[in-house]
Amino acid sequence: MPQPEPTLHDVEEAIAELLRTEEIGALAVLDSKGAPSVSMMHFAADGLTVYTATFGYTRKYAAMARDPRVSYTIAYLPPGGFSERLQARSIQVDGIATKVTDPEEIHRAVEVSREQFLWAQGTSMFDNFLKGTAHHQDFFRIDPVEALWNDNRVRQLWRRLVTFTPDGRHVAELRPYATARNPL
């Protein structure tokens, strides 16, 4: 049964919850010729902002350093597949990537990564970041600008365009998602 139309606050909470519980997604950057290039990445969420770590010798690192405009998508796909499709939800975010250099923010990125990635808890994987000795590897913070939010819990194929506040910390506006075949 369809749920009532969610409020701005409901959508913000649902997005934050998805970002907190799903760690793998696809990151799209613009290569040196302006073409999209996509990589699977681990994402750690701090509210609506996400952190991802990458090595300095990768194409995506060079692309984000050259042009900070990125997109990523993360989804919850229920284990029951098609029979549980009304639990599926996903987000496609357009954002701005910034290399994290402030030691306090690096600490925060490590903290949320360890909280979210169960496999990283109790490991020394992120210790080099905290010591300032993570050579050839950096965290990037991605601040959201706009997104497409899909939440089948509201009703199948329920989608909204999302605009975030300038600081990326809150949802500022929801707009109907219209397609050429089925405007809402």
Rank of each mutant, 00 (worst) to 15 (best):
G47P: 10
G47Q: 09
G47H: 09
L48D: 07
T49P: 01
T49M: 09
T49E: 03
T49F: 02
V50W: 03
V50C: 00
V50H: 00
Y51E: 01
T52Y: 02
T52H: 09
T52M: 10
A53D: 09
A53T: 06
A53L: 08
T54Q: 12
T54S: 14
F55I: 00
G56P: 08
G56F: 06
G56C: 09
Y57Q: 11
Y57M: 06
T58F: 03
T58I: 06
R59Y: 00
R59Q: 14
R59A: 14
K60I: 01
K60L: 01
A62D: 14
A63V: 04
M64D: 01
A65W: 00
R66E: 04
R66Q: 13
D67G: 04
D67F: 00
S71N: 11
S71D: 06
Y72R: 00
Y72D: 00
T73C: 14
T73H: 08
I74C: 06
A75R: 08
A75E: 12
Y76V: 06
Y76R: 06
Y76D: 11
L77S: 13
L77V: 15
P78M: 12
P78N: 10
P78R: 05
P78G: 11
P79C: 02
P79A: 10
G81E: 11
S83R: 15
S83D: 12
S83H: 12
E84S: 13
E84H: 13
L86T: 15
L86N: 15
Q87C: 05
A88I: 05
A88M: 15
S90T: 14
S90V: 03
S90A: 15
I91W: 02
I91Y: 00
I91A: 09
I91G: 03
I91F: 01
D94L: 11
D94K: 12
D94V: 10
G95M: 08
G95W: 03
G95K: 05
I96A: 11
I96D: 07
I96Y: 08
A97P: 04
A97F: 00
T98E: 15
T98L: 08
T98A: 12
K99N: 05
V100M: 05
T101S: 07
T101N: 01
T101I: 06
T101D: 09
D102P: 01
P103E: 02
P103C: 01
P103W: 01
E104P: 01
E105T: 08
E105W: 05
I106P: 02
I106W: 03
I106F: 05
H107A: 15
H107M: 10
R108D: 00
E115H: 10
E115Y: 09
E115K: 15
